[in-house]
Write a protein that binds this DNA or RNA. Structure first.
Lengths: 335, 335
DNA sequence: CACCCCATTGATATCGTTGTCAAAGAACAT
DNA sequence: ATGTTCTTTGACAACGATATCAATGGGGTG
């Protein structure tokens, strides 16, 4: 059926173990032997059997992506990034939907990792913010890499972005456009990014000596509907802001819809900004001013540092903060 | 470390093989023995080692989802559906991005399945339409289940939806709303759904004795941009239709944007309809009239029939066509 | 030249299951 | 009582890799 090490060893006239050494890049193999073996490997088209490797060496060559109800385009980008990182490495990606509210989550995941001998986890918000959960993984000695964690210690692997700074800068830009009445829609309270973005907004406002108007600050949860509802509320009141900064694009889209239904024009009557640069940002009209995170690069890096750790290359690839980019589009106008 | 069959066999005072029989639900085990074994299994918390099972029995308990650059929300829905089907079965889901244009695709996938001992594939458009590819899988005796295939033979497993019928009905509805000047934006030529939807439109037009205006029929590729470009073209000409039916929502959104930029109002100046009921459909204003496919249910079923086949339950779950649902929203108005 | 060391190689055990096959005993027919 | 069949069970090999440890031999040292 398929080619085994034994076949290769016969073809190359060496022992099974030597072939194993070559394909695992172990030290102390004569250069000439190595060449000979690699030739046979290529000639026969040998690929090691993952199940056997896994059984003996307790590695599965599988990473698992954990997520709970993320934005769909975010999920697709994360997957795509991880996939690219895995492509040439022999690792593969298993996906696992989770419920961050479930009390069984910890045990379920440990079970899952144990069952399938998953080598490492890649954890996305809001799971990245559950320190309880992460601690439990530490205790179980499960390897993982976190995307956008709330607390970062130097031991664990993570990738983050400069949410605070980006929100601060974007808010400052809105102010530079002449706005002082600026509303804000907060994100899902369980995502640490929500606070970072809000604080960025808040500090920018304060540092420009603008008074905060609580009526224009609404709690959302990153969903379109929560943005829509917030918009309805804000536009229903007597005094409305000249600009609204929503913690993500879905909510900004919700606000835009509520404004347009109310007969308000964007950006003539009200300017709008979002966060994420998800597809909807440029598909709306007018298109949204927003912040673009390098989600694919981030998740790709998250996978790389995890795999590097398995191969003992911990030095090469380290946890890292990525920079976001402001994208100006029609939804923000000069007053 | 972890509990093995051997431990259970000792605890239950039976042979290793008998434990194996029990956990695999094989026939010819005395009821009393079964009980005894199950008790020990539970007591010790035994879980079979997947790697060992896989090595010996050549089953991996893993399904793989193959996709090539689909709509992001479609992908998320498909995953979600499959995930739910797998949840209580012990199977897990690996994802695999593909390039349908690659000449290596066939070999890469066979390799991948071979490497990881993937039990079965779930194949999404446009890969579902590559009969060459599917034939190759058949030859390699790889199990798979196809979502929205172009040709359906009775042997293979698939799920489909009534694209033709839905497009026919929706077009008829547009006509009932008083429209006769109806444009159409075709989908990606490699997706069989594109033709089905187009033919549904065409037949409805013809059966209502309306003349087809070729200038209002444009080739798209399911992307927002292709819809936008088509819109720009159509609205640039002297005579414009009173309604446009786009083969999916992304393209409809593109048309909406191009219309709004041109100063045309939806639905006052022009009615719009899409297909898919992707999130953007209700996030736009006005919201899109569209067709909703039960994507989650479909992909869930695709996974179920595949797993049923492995367990020899081929009778219970069969290939199936799912019905779509028309959703009327503001973008379509009575003339 | 005798000795030791270290790089290189291979024989064999092992990982934790399932597959094969034969043995033991129960049930039934003759 | 004897033979036949069927159910139930277990001993042992096998899956395809890696781990252990010992054997081999070339090169350096005294």
């Amino acid at each position: 059926m398929s080619v085994t090490i034994k076949d290769v060893s016969k073809d190359a006239s060496v022992s099974i173990k030597t072939v194993s050494r070559v394909i695992n890049n172990e030290a102390n193999v004569a250069e000439s032997t190595k060449k000979k073996v690699l030739l046979s490997v290529k000639k026969l088209g040998f690929k090691p059997n993952k199940s056997a490797q896994s059984l003996r060496s307790k590695k599965s060559y599988m990473l698992a992506l954990l997520y709970d109800n993320p934005n769909k385009s975010y999920l697709a980008d994360v997957q795509s990034g991880i996939f690219n990182a895995c492509k040439s490495t022999g690792y593969n990606l298993v996906i696992q939907e989770c419920d961050y509210k479930s009390s069984e989550l910890k045990n379920d995941i440990v079970q899952f990792v144990d069952d399938f001998r998953i080598d490492g986890l890649i954890i996305t918000p809001p799971l990245s913010d559950m320190s309880d959960f992460l601690n439990h993984l530490d205790l179980s000695e499960i390897q993982y890499s976190v995307i956008a964690p709330s607390t970062m210690n130097t031991e664990s692997l993570y990738v983050s972005s400069n949410d605070y700074e980006a929100a601060y800068t974007l808010t400052s830009e809105i102010i530079k456009h002449g706005h002082t009445d600026i509303g804000f829609i907060k994100g899902h309270p369980k995502h640490s990014a929500s606070n970072l973005r809000f604080n960025g907004y808040l500090d920018a406002i304060k540092n420009h000596n603008i008074e905060v108007n609580e009526n224009w600050i609404k709690q959302g949860n990153f969903s379109f509907k929560s943005g829509f509802d917030a918009g309805v509320e804000i536009f229903h009141s007597a005094a409305i802001p000249t600009a609204i900064f929503a913690s993500n694009d879905s909510m900004a889209a919700g606000i835009m819809k509520s404004a347009q239904m109310k007969g308000l024009k964007i950006p003539e009557d009200i300017s709008l900004a979002g966060f994420d640069d998800s597809p909807i940002a440029h598909q709306l009209w007018p298109a949204l001013t927003t912040v673009k995170q390098p989600v694919e690069k981030m998740s790709s890096h998250a996978a790389k540092i995890l795999m590097a750790k398995f191969d003992g290359l911990a030095e090469k690839n380290k946890s890292k903060e990525f920079k976001s980019e402001l994208i100006f589009r029609e939804s923000l106008k000069n007053l």
